[in-house]
Structures are given as structure tokens and as C-alpha cells.
Amino acid sequence: MNINLELTDKKAPVSGEVRMSTKNLSLYYGDFQALRDITLNIPENAITAVIGPSGCGKSTFLRLFNRMNDLITGVKVDGRVELDGINIYDRDIDVVELRKKVGMVFQKPNPFPMSVFENVAFGPRRHGRKNRMELEDVVEKSLKQAALWDEVKDKLGQSALALSGGQQQRLCIARVLAVEPEVILMDEPCSALDPIATLRIEDLMKSLAENYTIVIVTHNMQQAARVSDMSAFFMMEEDRAGILVEYGPTAELFTNPKDKRTEDYITGRFG
């Protein structure tokens, strides 16, 4: 099968200002190439969804933006990943500062085994905020933003592990919001949640998108269609992963895909 790989060179359409972008980005795990020459722009204050079958490299792609892939030994990155025009893979980049600006929410809710309060205050504390009143303000504000305040305001001192899965995930979002990031990355944030909790997170994402740039990886195409402004479709072939097939406004990608493979995927013919 001969597949045209030049697709990735197409300029992706962008609404609004570009917040983050990748330029000719390739990533290798040792000899295995997990992302192939990816160029795309992430617009500001919008939700960009990354979709595609398992193993296509979408989580790896997401983890580029806060350099979470650095934790894995043997990862090599070629090309540029930019935040406001600055290459975050430059040698003099402070990864800790980067991760303050680019927060991340994970697939499985991962609150720390501490109180609700301490979970949200964790980031600010690490960044040197000690004043109790100040911390209380930050915690309240973040929990309100994450639409969790009303449910937990009377049990801030209780263990976060006693919350429900959906509450835990919103707590994790509050934990990220507490360090006042600019971009929020979400790696399949609803895959461990029931449909009702999922809808609450989706509503939350939409309201956050007014002030934050959000990138979400999702398995669930209805979810991508429901919440996102832009969609990027990744896929892999027999021995090649990390191909960006198509990127564009969600409405277009889902109703009028330009690539046959995108169409096949969203109509459920494979994956």
C-alpha cells in the first residue's frame, strides 16, 4: 500500500492566536519512531482534540508539550515544539517553569493520598507560597473553577482518595489550575469515568476554554466532536506509528474529512 506522507506538510487552519505549535517534529524511542514529522498549531483559548487508534502516538504527542516524555530513557526529539514562539526543547529551558505554564491532567485520576486541601495547595506550596490565608484563597478559587467547591467545601480536610472518581478528576484539574497555567493538557481524562462524570468534565472543559488553551487526547470520538474546536487525527500503519493524517476545525473534520483514512476512522470502519 502506497500512502502519501506529504499530508503533514499541509498548513493546518487555525482560528485565533497560536499558543503552542510543533514544527517538523519527530520523536524516537530508541530506534522506534513514534512521531513522524508533525507540524501543527494549537490555537489559544480553544480546545484541540487529538484522536486516533490506540498506539498511534497521541499520548506521546501530548506529552511533548510539557516534556513529560523526558522521564523515559532513550527518548530523542527532532524538530521544534514552541510555546509562544520559544522552542521548549532548547537547552536553556527550565522544565519546571515550563510545567507551571503547561499543566497536565492524566488518564487515571491521580490525587495524592493527602487531604483535598493539600492536593490543591501542593503546587503553590512547592512554588514557595506559604501564607495560609493566601493558600486558602488559591484553593477555594481553584476548586470553584473546577466546579468542585460546592461538593467538597465541608470536607477539605478529608482524604482526597475518599472522593468519587469524577470528583477526583476534577480535583486533579483544580490542582493544575492552582499553579495558574496557560495551557492544560488532558490525556484521556474521562476514560476511567462514568457517563455522567464524563459530561461534567466536558462542561468544565468548555468553561475553562474561555481562559485556557486546552489540548485533549481522547479515544472517544463523540467526545472530540462535542467539546473540541480543532481536531487532529493520528494513526499508525503496520510498522509505522505517529502519522498526522489530518488536522482542522472539528466541524469540518467530522462532517467533511479530506482524507479517506479519516473518513474510515470516524465512520467506524477501523480502529
Partner: peptide, 13 residues
């Protein structure tokens, strides 16, 4: 690993 990632992801060293 989730705990470490959660911590690093909010900019803890």
C-alpha cells in the same frame, strides 16, 4: 508512577 507524574506536572522539581 502516577503520583510522581502528578507532582511533576504541576511544576514540582
Amino acid at each position: 508512577r502516577e503520583y510522581r507524574e502528578g507532582s511533576l506536572a504541576v511544576g514540582a522539581t
